[in-house]
Design a protein around this nucleic acid. Structure first.
Lengths: 333, 333
DNA sequence: CCTCGTATGTAGAACGTTTTACCGACGAGC
DNA sequence: GCTCGTCGGTAAAACGTTCTACATACGAGG
């Protein structure tokens, strides 16, 4: 319960508090003998630096803020794992906020992050209005957008090309012989859903097919249950050659409902998901999907935000756009 | 970039800094008219309280630390979601640490949490040596064990009865007609794996069957790939009536490998998982599993830790043990 | 009229670091 | 023998809150 401070360490080692601080922060600045004496004292007393005092005086903390849309979705947790890895390697702590798709909750979380004076914020935004991020920047907090293109030039962003992903996916289905595709998606107000559809249309056009060949089933949620429901609708309305889902969770739901209805995948209907979550490969008919470099997305975003706040003068803002990768499995074979 | 402090708010509102602090922390103590003037000034200046200064002076922060074993496992993310929910409702931030099963990483994370002077720590420990937690407590940080029974009486813990879970699962398989069971598990050094096996043996004994009826396949990892490998071994050695997996990820792998080998589930082999993750219901043959109250586990643990640190004198330590619930689906029908 | 309690607010000292300015000693260069 | 630069270290002032006295005013009770 007794918290030992830098002063007591200093007394024990027979030096001034300033020297202890130097041992902690710029060990090179202090003579080897003294340094060892101080380190010894630190060990003996079990001293652990008071992060808040340090933050207060130094003007910046060693924590990053992270706001994700849905911590239950494996795609986001994979990204978060990458962020946590990179941050912890450099001695940064990560404060996690789950916006659960709610803008209000996201704002509340950002407020907490601002109070904590995090060094930087990594955010997977819930919607397209990013003005609240500018307010963070006014407080001197670096912000990097994750899985979202930049909304202004003086800002870093790490994204994955969703238009290309949609195009690649549908082009794959067409190459496998499909002549029409159903697109099962979440709300088209979600950027990812919208852009993947855009890509899908582009693929059709490139194949000389009209936009009428893409039947869109827009669901309220993006989980397996919604996928099952969508499959029911498709069954009722007549099956297309192929189904492209905006998300693996949807696809798994579709898959399950189709198999239960006696539809063979891929023989009767081909099926594609998106994200390539771990469970995509493990489903009974393994799922073709678009793989995104989730872990790397998180890692690079972290490196960018740390570079921005640790080297503000040399930092060059970057807009990084990864390309998703087609993973063809049984469901489109 | 200019950070506005409580002083400037005070100047603007024509009061002293102490009064602003009171408005922030005990609004009841200040006259309505003054309070409004201060709140007005706060809004106009865009003041946001400096958490570190507050922590430094007040002696405690409004953050909780969370250390999980594997952020990629849906079971843990569900627990984490519950924690994040409860914490954010009360204005607490959560610092996330992923130990990735590594004890060294867990210790590094705990050190960071100690530096940040988190108010309390929620930990899903990687192993059974919990002495390092006592060191945290010496620093005045409350610790609550999650998904792990308490290791000392003066400590809170929220766990799920793994012995009962194993017993229920295997009893279910036996009731469905199995006369022998294969137990596919991760390392038996992991408490959960060990106790679930113990429960399985108890169920056999209760049915008048000997421990030789439980064939144990101990895998190094607990993911779908390990499950596939285990299924391969089972196929080579001769299939049992039923397979009980320590984890849904393993079970999904087993399921996939069995179906691919032409084995019918549940007709040829019954299959049970554990955790009841979202994907258990969505797999082609929906998976029977043991459901644990993940979200509630996190929520209650959070309430306990907050009660412990906010009301240390009235707080009563609790050892809460939930009972897992059998969810029977197609794979054991 | 005096005292007392309550309601409201203020002044100023903490909290534990980091940082700036400064000091003494020592060796090199001239 | 003098000046200078460097090295290793110290003293003390911040950083932005909260908290513990301590004021002041006012109404009630005697």
């Amino acid at each position: 319960m007794t918290t030992v401070s830098i002063k007591e360490v200093a007394a024990r080692a027979g030096v001034s508090p300033g020297t202890v601080s130097n041992v902690l922060n710029r060990p090179a600045k202090v003579a080897a003998a003294t340094r060892e004496r101080v380190e010894e004292a630190i060990r003996e007393l079990g001293f652990v630096r008071h992060g808040s005092a340090s933050t207060l005086r130094a003007g910046h903390s060693r924590t990053l803020g992270l706001s994700v849309i849905d911590i239950g979705n494996p795609f986001f947790t994979d990204v978060a794992a990458g962020i946590e890895d990179a941050a912890s390697e450099r001695g940064y702590a990560v404060i996690l906020g789950n916006s659960a798709g709610s803008r209000a909750k996201e704002e509340r979380n950002l407020r907490v992050l601002a109070e904590q004076r995090v060094r930087g914020v990594l955010i997977i935004p819930t919607d397209e209005d990013l003005s609240r991020l500018d307010r963070l920047r006014e407080h001197g907090i670096s912000v990097v957008l994750v899985d979202h293109p930049a909304h202004r030039p003086d800002q870093c962003a790490v994204a994955v090309d969703d238009v290309a992903g949609g195009r690649t996916a549908v082009a794959h289905l067409l190459a496998r012989g499909a002549s029409g595709v159903a697109y099962v998606t979440g709300p088209l107000t979600i950027r990812q859903c919208l852009e993947r559809r855009q890509g899908a249309l582009a693929a059709l056009e490139a194949a000389g097919l009209g936009p009428d060949r893409l039947r869109v089933a827009e669901m309220a949620a993006m989980n397996a249950r919604a996928g099952e429901k969508a499959a029911g609708d498709l069954l009722a309305a007549g099956l297309p050659d192929a189904v492209f889902c905006a998300n693996d969770l949807l696809a798994l739901g579709v898959l399950r409902a189709l198999l239960q209805a006696g539809v063979r995948v891929p023989d009767d209907v081909m099926l594609m998901g998106y994200d390539d979550i771990e469970f995509a490969a493990a489903s009974a008919v393994s799922l073709s999907s678009m793989r995104q470099p989730t872990h790397q997305l998180g890692r690079i975003a972290t490196e960018l935000v740390l570079d921005e706040c640790e080297n503000p003068e040399t930092h060059a803002h970057q807009h990084i756009m990864f390309q998703p990768e087609l993973v063809a499995r049984e469901s489109t074979r």
